[in-house]
């Protein structure tokens, strides 16, 4: 049962990665080329998944959109983890006053929805995929900070930390040698979950026009552009793609945790 979910996760997320890679070298049509006479073509030949209101080939946009999807996930999660994890570990390893300050700052950031942040950043820097990814990343920092702090507290209560302290190993070294490796599995699962959340959030922002401009093919933008009366299928296709990606990375998260735990090797 466990294996099945990991396999489904691998297949789904693998599809997205393959689509992104393929689109780097080949797409059936130019994903930006407007072709008026071909607008609203139903799925068939030569447009496998049909065309949108501008006559742009949907299959090509879908493939290129996978790139954006992955980019957003990677940028958002990396940003959130790079800032949130060290903060969480630092807070979890001691300092009470600093901990209180970080916790309250986290609460404030947590109360600010990604959507609001994205509107803010889009207004200040202009709407683009990067601003959307950065906004989602910043909004995700508290998630990583809290997760890292909780996991660090668990690790710090272990005797091997006392053993290191008795030997006079400095706190920074303990953080790198003991704390980080032991909280990685929890963070791995969180990263995968946040990755899919970021994909979903970006799709939402694109749909609202707060992310990619029309010329950048993204799945959220495709949803936005779909004409529900003329060709409802054009809304279903990116919708399914988003669902597959979100599901895939979520299921993959569980697998990542098991893989990173040396104690689980016996069970495999």
């Amino acid at each position: 049962m466990k294996k099945l979910t990991v396999i489904i996760g691998l297949v789904c997320s693998g599809l997205v990665v393959v689509a992104a890679l393929v689109s780097l070298v080949w797409t059936p049509f130019d994903p930006r080329k407007v072709d008026g006479p071909a607008r609203f073509a139903p799925p068939g030949w030569p447009h496998v998944l049909g065309t949108d209101a501008f006559g742009i080939d949907t299959a090509s946009r879908l493939l290129v959109g996978a790139q954006t999807t992955l980019l957003v996930g990677v940028v958002a999660v990396a940003l959130a983890a790079v800032i949130g994890v060290p903060l969480g570990v630092f807070v979890g390893m001691g300092h009470r006053i600093a901990g209180e300050v970080v916790a309250r700052a986290s609460d404030i950031l947590f109360a600010l929805p990604a959507l609001l942040l994205a509107i803010l950043l889009a207004a200040a820097l202009g709407a683009s995929v990067t601003t959307a990814a950065v906004a989602i990343g910043i909004a995700t920092i508290p998630v990583f900070q809290r997760m890292a702090r909780a996991a660090t507290l668990t690790v710090m209560s272990q005797d091997y930390i006392l053993a290191a302290q008795v030997s006079g190993i400095p706190g920074g070294v303990i953080a790198i040698r003991h704390v980080l490796p032991n909280i990685t599995p929890v963070l791995g699962v969180q990263a995968a979950a946040s990755f899919s959340m970021a994909i979903l959030a970006e799709a939402g922002l694109s749909y609202l026009g707060l992310s990619a401009p029309q010329s950048t093919p993204t799945w959220g933008r495709m949803l936005h552009d779909a004409n529900l009366y003329a060709a409802p299928i054009q809304a279903v296709i990116p919708g399914v793609a988003i669902a597959v990606a979100v599901l895939g990375f979520n299921l993959l998260g569980d697998g990542v945790r098991d893989y990173l735990d040396p104690r689980m090797k016996e069970l495999r």
Binding site: Q158, S167, R177, P181, P262
Partner: peptide, 20 residues
């Protein structure tokens, strides 16, 4: 103190880092 004192704990499951 730190350079001349060492300690052995009750439960070796908790006193050895599982990832090292």
């Amino acid at each position: 103190l730190r350079s001349s004192v060492q300690m052995v704990f009750q439960d070796p499951r908790g006193s050895l880092d599982p990832r090292m």
